[in-house]
Amino acid sequence: MEELRSAMEAHMDQMSDLVQKITAELRSGLGPAYDNMMGFFHAISWKEEPWLMCLLGFYVVLLLVVVISRKNVNFQMCLFLVALGGVYFAESLNKILGRNWKSFATQNYFDPYGVFLSVLWSGPLLIFAIIILVNTLFSLCHLIVRWKKAELRHRARLSRNKED
């Protein structure tokens, strides 16, 4: 019984420490996270890496395609699947690029954990997928409203025909 009590007290102490650490992080605000992100972006040689400029250009073009094709649901679903496929294959892409970085970059950005590729490849693709998903939900809501209006008109027409 004493072992159980000591184990419970040790667990409660660990939980108390964890809660204190989390609340201390929350009280510090977003400052440390912002500093880490700014350090990450300043560590990248943006002007010396033409492939990064091409990647940013690709994202601009992809965003334009997403916005321009917003009314074409089938094409948007294809884009959605391609974006999620790009995220799915990010780990494999990170390994390939990590092995061949000397042929296109001045330094090795591709760490074993894939942080760089997650931020600069998967992050934007997930944002585009979310934009497409929200657009699809709005399209579906609009379609449901049109369907319900047509149903109500049909019922009104049927009731008028029965009265005649």
Rank of each mutant, 00 (worst) to 15 (best):
D13L: 08
V145H: 09
A150G: 06
M1R: 09
F110W: 07
L81E: 08
A83I: 00
L4D: 08
G98Y: 01
P50W: 10
P124A: 05
F40A: 04
N74V: 15
S69R: 13
A33E: 14
V145G: 03
D17C: 10
P32E: 04
F116Y: 01
R157D: 14
A129T: 03
A129D: 03
G123D: 03
L26H: 08
A150H: 09
W121N: 02
L152Y: 08
Y34H: 10
A129S: 14
I68H: 09
F89G: 04
L126Y: 00
L56E: 06
E25W: 10
G85Q: 02
I127H: 03
H11V: 14
I131M: 12
R155Q: 14
E163T: 14
M15Q: 12
V66Q: 04
S118E: 05
G85S: 03
L18E: 15
G86L: 01
S139G: 06
L133Q: 11
L62S: 11
R160D: 10
L84T: 00
K95S: 04
F89A: 06
W121S: 00
I44R: 00
R155T: 12
T23A: 07
K21T: 13
Y88R: 03
R153I: 10
S103C: 06
H11Y: 14
V134S: 05
L79E: 05
I144S: 07
V73W: 05
L64E: 09
P32A: 05
Q14W: 08
S159Y: 11
L56M: 15
M15P: 02
S16I: 06
I22P: 02
V82N: 03
Y34R: 15
Q76S: 13
G29L: 02
V119I: 15
M12S: 09
K21I: 10
D164W: 11
G98P: 01
W51R: 01
G85W: 00
V65R: 11
L52P: 02
V66L: 05
R99A: 13
M12N: 10
T23V: 09
L56R: 06
A90D: 08
I44W: 01
K21D: 15
D35E: 15
F80Q: 05
N100V: 04
A156F: 12
L84M: 04
F104T: 06
I144N: 12
V67G: 02
K21W: 10
S45C: 04
R5N: 11
K102L: 11
D35H: 13
E2R: 11
F58S: 04
L137F: 12
L97D: 01
L143N: 14
N108V: 05
V119R: 03
A33F: 13
L63W: 10
L125M: 13
H142Q: 12
Y109A: 02
I132W: 01
F110D: 00
W121I: 03
D35R: 11
F75Q: 09
V115M: 08
F75D: 03
S139D: 08
I96C: 05
S159H: 09
L126P: 02
L120S: 02
K102I: 06
V60A: 13
A105T: 06
I132G: 02
S92T: 12
M37F: 15
L81G: 07
F80C: 04
G39V: 05
E151G: 04
E9M: 12
F80G: 03
R160G: 08
T136F: 06
L158N: 10
